[in-house]
């Protein structure tokens, strides 16, 4: 291949300049600020002091905060598990629909997306609240004699998480399965694989990038989506996201909030690095 001429190079650089400036100002800048902030000392009442310390990170090691991380992690694990169980088959079968139905299905998926998820979550409050529709249904079917009192419980938060994040998994798996050449499954069968073997050795392996990217798209947000825990969990369930928001908005402890954010971001980066290692690609499936 021939090397690009210097002139082309410089004009290319110029064209991309606004992009660099934007990235510098709005992505890299705040990021660096956040990292710096996380090493600074909190001022007595408001703002930060120009002194540097590791206290904010050591602070996280306190049992109460570690517990928050653990609880968040468990909830994220549970919700991602549920999302995989529902979302993978959903995306897989959607990719197998005839063309006309794919479009319709996509529309059905997208319409709720256009509504603010906060508003949709308030809908769940109505469903979950004592003597609400869910209780009425459960009691009507004779499953229980008393109201389930699901609102402000762990299951309610879990349902909310799954509900809000499921879509990302479906779309990620769908885009992966859509690209797949189903002739490969036939080739596997032809070579002696049972339907299950063919699925496991070919279909699953080829849709794994979609599944993993779905996991990243759901696991990380479910550690941080504090408003779901707030709305459906009351004050009982505190997630890392809620903690950060709390430290920032109520306690005004910006450095500690920054340190928590840095840890969360480090976890995210770790997961994406793992994803790259497994799938040999840097593109997340299902993000347009």
């Amino acid at each position: 291949m021939s090397k690009p001429k210097p002139r082309q190079k410089s004009s290319l650089w110029l064209t991309a300049l606004p992009l660099y400036i934007f990235t510098l100002l709005f992505v890299l800048g705040p990021l660096v600020y956040m990292v710096v902030l996380s090493f600074q000392q909190r001022a007595e009442v408001w703002g930060v002091l120009n002194e540097y310390t590791l206290d904010n990170y050591l602070n996280i090691l306190q049992p109460v905060y570690l517990n928050t991380f653990l609880q968040s992690f468990k909830l994220a694990l549970a919700s991602t598990g549920c999302i995989i169980l529902i979302g993978y088959p959903f995306g897989y079968f959607m990719a197998k629909l005839p063309g006309k139905w794919k479009g319709r299905m996509m529309l059905v998926l997208m319409v709720p997306f256009w509504t603010n998820s906060l508003i949709r979550l308030y809908g769940w409050i109505i469903i979950f609240r004592a003597n609400g529709p869910l209780d009425a249904l459960a009691m009507g079917l004779g499953l229980t004699d008393e109201p389930l009192k699901l609102l402000y419980t762990y299951p309610a938060v879990l349902v909310g998480m799954v509900y809000v994040l499921l879509e990302f998994m479906i779309l990620a798996v769908y885009s992966s399965a859509e690209k797949m050449d189903w002739g490969l499954v036939e080739a596997a069968r032809d070579l002696g694989a049972s339907p299950l073997r063919a699925f496991w050795t070919v279909t699953f392996k080829l849709t794994l990038p979609g599944l993993l990217s779905g996991v990243i798209l759901t696991f990380i947000p479910s550690m941080g989506l504090f408003f779901i825990a707030d709305i459906l969990g009351g004050n009982k369930i505190v997630l890392v996201g809620s903690l950060i928001q709390d430290q920032l908005m109520r306690a005004h402890n910006w450095p500690f909030a920054a340190a928590l954010s840095v840890i969360l971001m480090a976890m995210t980066s770790l997961m994406i690095a793992l994803y790259k290692r497994i799938t040999h690609t840097s593109e997340l499936e299902g993000i347009l």
């Binding site: 036939e186 080739a187 032809d190 070919v202």
Partner: peptide, 17 residues
């Protein structure tokens, strides 16, 4: 089913995994 037949195919687009 195809897996029970001692017949193999070379597909038009090769269908390599």
């Amino acid at each position: 089913p195809p897996e029970k037949r001692n017949v193999n195919t070379v597909f038009q687009n090769y269908a390599l995994f």
